[in-house]
Design a protein around this nucleic acid. Structure first.
Lengths: 127, 127
DNA sequence: CGGGATCCGTTCCGATACTG
DNA sequence: CAGTATCGGAACGGATCCCG
C-alpha cells in the first residue's frame, strides 16, 4: 500500500506540515468543490453564480471566490461596464483539478442510493 | 459542457435537493477525506488513527468515524479483548471512493508548489 | 483501549444595511 | 451589478473528566 497523501521523505504521513494537507484543507469545505465544478462549465458572473449554487450566501460566496482566486484556481476579470461586470473563470491550474472534482461528483451520483440506504439502516439500528 | 454534479432530469443543477450534493456535503469536511485515505492503507485502530492523523482530537475523530460508518463508507469491528480492541476498515463502497480521494491527494501533491506560489503573489499584490 | 458527557471559547454564517 | 461592514446566533472544536 502506498501512501497517496504525503509520500515525501521529509514529511510524516498525514502530518500537519504535509503540503498535500494544506491543499486538501482548503478544498474540503462546503462550497469550494461545488464552485469549481460550476466554473468548469464556463465563465460565470457573481450573481449568476449565486443563483446557480443554491443556498450560498452573498458573503460566503465572496469569501470563497477570494480564497480560490488566492490559490490560483480561478481568475476574476472585471469589465468596465455600467454597472460593472465581473466574470469568474477557471485558471489552467483550476482546470486540471476540475477533472478530479468531477470524478468525485460522479461517484456521489452513482452511489447516493447506497449511502442513503446505509444511513437508513444505521439509524434504524440505533433507534 | 456536461454537468457532472447533478444531471438528473428531476433535479436542478446544484440545487440543494440534488442527491450528489448530499454526498459532497458529507465528504467535504476537514477530516473525512483524510481518514478515508488513511484507511485505504488497511485496518487501523482508534488510537492509532488518532496518532496517525495529526491534529485531530479524540472527540472529532469519534464523531467523524461515526458519520463515515453511517454513510456505509467504513466498518467498525469490536474485539472482546481486555482492554477492548476496535478496528476500522473501509467497506467495499468506501474502497470504490478511495481511488478518487487518492487522485485528489495526488493532485494536491503535484500542484502544491503552484498553489503556494499563487498565494504568495496574491498576498504581495494585496499588501 | 475506546470512547461518552460536559464546559466553554472561537469561528462560522446568515441577515441586514450600505457603497461605487 | 458586485461587492464590503457589522452584528448576533449557531455550530464547531478543544480540553477535561469520567467510565466499562
Amino acid at each position: 500500500m502506498t501512501d497517496f497523501l504525503c509520500d515525501l521523505a521529509s514529511y510524516n504521513v498525514y502530518s500537519q506540515a504535509c503540503p498535500a494537507r494544506l491543499v486538501l484543507d482548503r478544498l474540503a469545505d462546503k462550497w469550494s468543490l461545488l464552485l469549481m465544478d460550476r466554473l468548469s462549465q464556463g465563465p460565470v458572473r457573481f450573481n449568476q453564480l449565486r443563483r446557480d449554487v443554491e443556498g450560498i450566501s452573498q458573503k460566503v460566496l465572496s469569501q470563497s471566490l477570494k480564497k480560490l482566486e488566492r490559490d490560483g484556481l480561478i481568475a476574476r476579470r472585471v469589465f468596465a461596464t455600467v454597472p460593472v461586470t465581473v466574470e469568474y473563470t477557471l485558471t489552467e491550474l483550476g482546470a486540471t483539478l476540475s477533472d478530479t472534482v468531477a470524478s468525485l461528483a460522479h461517484w456521489a451520483e452513482r452511489n447516493i442510493d447506497a449511502v442513503l440506504a446505509s444511513q437508513r439502516q444505521y439509524d434504524a439500528h440505533n433507534a
